[in-house]
């Protein structure tokens, strides 16, 4: 794979968008995002997650009211939920099995990369009140909201930083080849 590979490029150029236009997102764009979520890896092929796509602007505002991590004004949301009934059927012990959250992350990344490919911006949200969002969406008790993907057409963002502040993280900063080496 070269650095020009489209998949690699999509991964490298995706950013969290915190400024969106108010343009509505066509259903034809949301469908491939859901297809990509469906094709995300799932531990043991258990498929214990459900996805709620929200296009209604009043519902989005209601969900946003209980989502302090939602700093932008998206025009669509995908709420990834754990289906606790399905998890019980599959014998998943949710309190101890972290793979459920790994699967949520994998599906979310697929959604965000697909959105990016379609010219849309996304921002992940985990900072929300579960009880508030559950009530806002009238979720049944067996669906637990875990993660919200905000979606919209991105606007250019200007990040004002203090002089000399660098946020660059390199591969070398996080990688140990062969074995972990203690830093001095």
């Amino acid at each position: 794979m070269s650095a020009k590979d489209p998949v690699f490029q999509a991964i490298k150029t995706r950013r969290a968008s915190r400024l969106f236009t108010q343009e509505a997102i066509a259903r034809e764009h949301l469908i491939p995002m859901m297809e990509s979520a469906r094709w995300a890896p799932s531990a043991g092929n258990r498929r214990i997650h459900k996805f709620i796509v929200i296009e209604d602007q009043r519902t989005i505002q209601l969900v946003r009211s209980f989502s302090p991590g939602m700093l932008s004004h998206p025009t669509a949301l995908i709420v990834i939920c754990t289906d606790k009934d399905k998890a019980a059927l599959e014998g998943v012990r949710l309190a101890a099995d972290m793979s459920t959250w790994v699967d949520v992350g994998a599906a979310a990344q697929n959604i965000m990369l697909t959105a990016h490919e379609l010219g849309l911006g996304t921002c992940p949200t985990t900072s929300f009140s579960h009880s508030g969002v559950s009530q806002a969406l009238n979720l049944p008790s067996h669906l637990e909201p875990e993660y919200i993907v905000q979606i919209g057409y991105p606007l250019p963002e200007t990040r004002v930083m203090r002089p000399g502040v660098s946020t660059k993280l390199t591969v070398d900063d996080i990688t140990y080849w062969g074995a972990f080496e203690q830093e001095n």
């Binding site: 009211s65 209980f66 302090p68 991590g69 700093l71 929300f128 009140s129 508030g132």
Partner: peptide, 25 residues
């Protein structure tokens, strides 16, 4: 009120510095 109560809720498990962030937001 929705924002403040939701912030209080999630501050129970989020990193400490997120609390001041919610207040300033």
């Amino acid at each position: 009120l929705a924002y403040l109560t939701a912030s209080a809720d999630i501050s129970l498990f989020e990193p400490d510095l997120y609390g001041p962030f919610r207040l300033i937001d």
